[in-house]
Amino acid sequence: MADTKQAKQTERKAARLAKQIKAFSARHGGAEGQLAHLGQRGTRIVLVGEDGGWGDLVAPTHDMALSAAERAGLTLHENFDGELAAKVRTGPYEWSRMAGIQVGGPSNG
């Protein structure tokens, strides 16, 4: 009985993640993604929209992340490089944060 309850909770979480992926895709004219293992924390679902917008979600397990991506129809890439990385568009805020970490600008905390 506990396994059934756990399976239902896992199913609901994967469905919520898929819904969030679909919403991101709708806002950004489509989306592609990549799954990044985070160790014990789970798996990050990195999303890149056709318009260059980007974001991420975290699933507690790789299987759940994969299930959510498949349900949402997300095209997955093995690595975050090449064509996928080239689509990402960053603005002044991101550049300031990235530079700040390196050259004493705004902290990342």
Rank of each mutant, 00 (worst) to 15 (best):
G73W: 03
E50W: 00
A2K: 15
R44F: 04
S107F: 13
H37I: 02
D81R: 06
H77F: 02
G100K: 10
W95L: 15
L74Y: 04
F24M: 08
S25E: 08
V46E: 05
G105R: 12
Q40C: 00
R97F: 12
S67C: 00
K22L: 03
G55N: 07
L17C: 05
K87V: 11
A36V: 09
E50F: 04
S67W: 00
Q6T: 13
F24D: 10
G73Q: 01
T10M: 06
D56F: 07
Q102G: 09
Q6S: 13
A23W: 06
T90V: 15
G73S: 04
L57Q: 06
K19L: 07
E50G: 08
T4W: 14
E83M: 07
A36K: 05
A23G: 05
Q6D: 11
D81H: 07
Q6W: 11
L38D: 04
L35I: 04
H62Q: 09
S96T: 14
T43D: 02
H62V: 00
F80S: 03
W95M: 15
G49H: 10
T43A: 01
G91R: 13
R89Y: 07
V103A: 09
M64S: 06
T4H: 13
G53N: 04
R27W: 00
G104T: 11
R89P: 09
R44C: 02
Q40W: 08
E11P: 01
R27H: 00
Y93T: 14
Q40K: 09
A69D: 01
E50I: 00
R27Q: 02
K13E: 12
N108Y: 13
M98R: 15
G42C: 02
L17H: 08
R71M: 04
Q9E: 15
Q9C: 06
A85R: 09
G33K: 02
L38K: 09
A26H: 11
E83T: 14
A15L: 06
F80A: 07
V88R: 12
L66N: 03
G29L: 06
T10H: 07
V58D: 03
S67Y: 00
F24K: 07
L84F: 09
T90I: 15
T61W: 01
E70P: 01
R71I: 00
G73L: 07
G109R: 12
T75Y: 05
A36C: 05
